[in-house]
């Protein structure tokens, strides 16, 4: 029997004629924890490599990470399934009301969380208020070849569709909004709607087990809506009432 999940589509503050509310389904029974999504995300979104020293200070920058916990006490230890955690793009996002400069804002047309890099002044309040720890702070100009001569070749690998963030700026998973925009532009130029499966974020594209599905969750016919609407579905920290756009599937046969 399908469990009743609070859907982000039951929203009052989104525009009436939405262009598409985007959502993701992560199947934890398929995920092998191979970290391909982490690597793909970093390459797609110009997420810098912070290096050994800064990683030691806990300043690692990843927009998606694989979480895993141990359950029980020795010797009866069981590992929880692999759990890729990215920004959940909550409908009621805790990061938004705390930003003093409105750099963390809500997209009314697509119900996404946005981070406006040129507004951000780096108070890091949003990251403190994020229950999923999905936001990462840029402590230095890590990709500046003048500061990191060993990374000089990586400076040529920037994705031109994504802003190269400066230091002192908070950043997070955007659901690969540059790919959404590209698909929207292609669809508009061909005078049609976006097809299901046309927008594929970097993590879903790289996943060898096809554990990540992406698409419109306001349309019940899409693959992602049908995958989310099963008894295996759950949201992370559902009791907080953030109404995330990412559904996790676990506990299958």
């Amino acid at each position: 029997m399908p469990k009743e999940l609070k859907s982000p589509t039951s929203s009052a503050n989104t525009a009436q004629d939405v262009q598409g509310i985007w959502g993701m389904v992560v199947d934890q029974d398929l995920c092998t924890g191979c970290q391909a999504c982490v690597a793909a995300c970093s390459m797609e979104n110009n997420v810098p490599f912070v290096g050994e020293v800064d990683a030691g200070y806990g300043r690692s920058m990843q927009w998606i990470r694989i979480e895993r916990f141990w359950q029980g006490s020795y010797p009866n230890i069981k590992a929880t399934p692999y759990q890729p955690v990215m920004c959940q793009n909550c409908h009621n996002a805790p990061c938004e009301p705390v930003c003093p400069v409105y750099a963390s804002v809500h997209s009314l047309s697509e119900d996404l969380n946005l981070q406006v890099y040129n507004r951000c002044v780096g108070t890091r309040y949003c990251a403190n208020n994020c229950p999923y720890e999905a936001r990462v702070f840029n402590w230095r100009d890590y990709m500046d070849p003048r500061q990191r001569p060993e990374l000089v070749t990586l400076a040529n690998h920037f994705n031109p569709d994504v802003t190269v963030r400066r230091r002192g700026v908070m950043e997070k998973c955007t659901f690969c909004i540059q790919r959404i925009r590209h698909a929207e532009d292609t669809a508009a130029s061909e005078n049609r709607d976006i097809r299901d499966g046309e927008v594929v974020p970097a993590c879903a594209q790289a996943c060898p087990a096809s554990a990540i599905t992406f698409g419109r969750i306001d349309d019940p016919t899409t693959k992602v809506s049908q995958a989310a609407d099963t008894s295996r579905g759950s949201h992370l920290l559902e009791e907080l009432g953030t109404i995330p756009h990412v559904t996790y599937l676990a506990g299958g046969a």
Binding site: V18, Q19, L112, V116, T163, R181
Partner: peptide, 16 residues
């Protein structure tokens, strides 16, 4: 027009 205005004044239309 209203929906289009919401979309065209959205931050994510240009900033990402």
């Amino acid at each position: 027009l209203e929906a289009l205005r919401v979309k065209l004044t959205d931050c994510s239309t240009c900033h990402y």
